[in-house]
């Protein structure tokens, strides 16, 4: 079972690393969206700093949303998804492997590049650390919940808008607490509560979302 997890993770990573531009696109999108905001308002440091947590978090939400397709779309189209479901290994584990690969390829790069954007948005140095922590706890939740949405819509033609309609409302708690943590950190207060909440949501999503995803995949595959 662990082996299956490991090999599937490895396979997804390899496949993704072979088409590097696809990996880079969500990241470039993320940077681009954040760059738009200082251009749209007068970029005084105070104003930027005020907007920064919200802008960075919304941009990462959208960037993850755009990359979600990669989770199952290709596997669905070339039939390897059906093969995965036929395998004797529990589907939950396989889903978890795919989600883990997705996070390593899209969530983690976001976390790594986010401090740079924090500098763009004039965030004080103390809150950069909180920015990293909040993204580190929050982005896996985005991948996990997103997996449910993709597995429901993967067979729908032009399911992109539909996917965002389904997934974005479910992202709201993560957005609220992720952005709020940075906000509070800029004021120099303790952010433990916010980070604990994000951690709790992560644990909940980690235990329930793969189950829901595998049910959804079975529904999708039965058509």
């Amino acid at each position: 079972m662990l082996k299956a997890f490991y090999y599937l993770l490895l396979r997804d990573m390899r496949l993704a690393l072979r088409s590097r531009h696809e990996l880079a696109n969500p990241l470039i999108f993320f940077v681009l969206v954040v760059t738009l905001f200082p251009l749209a308002v007068m970029p005084t440091p105070e104003r930027l700093q005020e907007m920064a947590p919200g802008v960075i978090w919304v941009a990462s939400l959208l960037s993850v949303l755009l990359s979600l397709d990669r989770l199952f779309k290709q596997d669905y189209e070339d039939g390897s998804l059906d093969q995965l479901m036929l395998s004797p290994n529990p589907l939950v584990i396989l889903v978890l492997a795919k989600v883990a690969a997705h996070w390593l390829l899209t969530g983690l790069p976001l976390v790594i590049i986010a401090p740079l954007l924090g500098v763009f948005m004039a965030l004080p140095a103390e809150s950069l650390q909180v920015l990293i922590w909040s993204l580190l706890l929050g982005t896996p939740v985005l991948s996990l919940i997103g997996a449910i949405g993709v597995s429901l819509t993967v067979a729908v033609n032009r399911g992109g808008v539909l996917l965002s309609l389904i997934v974005l409302p479910l992202y709201i708690p993560v957005l609220i607490f992720g952005a709020n943590a940075i906000d509070v950190a800029s004021d120099g207060m303790s952010v433990r509560g916010q980070l604990y909440f994000l951690g709790a949501v992560l644990v909940l999503a980690l235990s329930l979302a793969p189950l829901a995803t595998s049910v959804a995949l079975r529904i999708t595959a039965s058509r």
């Binding site: 449910i148 429901l152 389904i166 409302p169 479910l170 709201i172 708690p173 609220i176 607490f177 909440f197 949501v201 909940l204 329930l208 829901a212 049910v215 959804a216 529904i219 999708t220």
Partner: peptide, 22 residues
């Protein structure tokens, strides 16, 4: 029916979380 039914159930799990976080 099945797909949207699952979505409704996921939504029910989320409603209290969304409510309290808001």
């Amino acid at each position: 029916d099945k797909a949207s039914g699952l979505l409704a159930i996921v939504g029910v799990v989320n409603i209290p979380i969304i409510h309290y976080s808001v």
